[in-house]
Amino acid sequence: MLDTAFEALKTFDWGSDLAALAPIEEAATASHGKPEARQDLENRLIAALKGTLTRDAQDYICRKLANVGTAAAVPTLAGLLLNKGNSHMSRFALEQIPAAEADQALRDALPKVSGDLKVGVISSIGARRDSAAVPALSSLLSDSDPAVARAAILALGAIGSVESAAALQTALRAAGDRRATMIDAVLKCAESLLASNQVATASSIYKAFTDESQPRIVRLAATRGLLACASQPAVRSI
């Protein structure tokens, strides 16, 4: 049955009957807790992805690798990251693969892509909260492509670490019309830091945005953050 499904995948395209691929779906579920069966399925998916397939079939495989892929699938997916027609679905898989190789593949792709594809790679790095990517993302805060710079801002906000907050705060001085997005990202960092009990750091970030020079909505957000910091048990006991 599984052989038949992979055979069907070779000619699968928009409008094809999805039922022909049902054995692949079933194998993905049934191989849970069965390493050999799971590895066999992944190997078949990778091999198929290396072949000549329609975009729809490639997309389907990426969807499955998002569920069952491991570091073994990363090199093949990494190659697709650079193709306009495949980059998103490559990320669809890579973003979910719990392996350091996936982070590395995304970081490696950064200097090789531009425009929307770069924005996509950055967004996946942010979604994975890859702290090792902070230096690379920081260097993109002043990118000449506003969409790339914005993506880097949002990704650093999603990472939410001390380092990402510091990078954003430094860049804030020359933020120009990206200032509001950058402040939003810094505030998001403060929320992450507060959630991880780094109250003093979060508090110092919030304090920087409470002065009268800040837009009202930012001052209110910072004040709310300070109140949240003050309500932390460690602070209350001081």
């Binding site: 980059s87 979910q96 594809l117 999603a158």
Partner: peptide, 14 residues
């Protein structure tokens, strides 16, 4: 946990 989210098509981002 892999199913709690999905990658968004570029240039869209949360």
């Amino acid at each position: 946990n892999r199913m709690t989210d999905r990658a968004r098509r570029e240039p869209w981002q949360l």
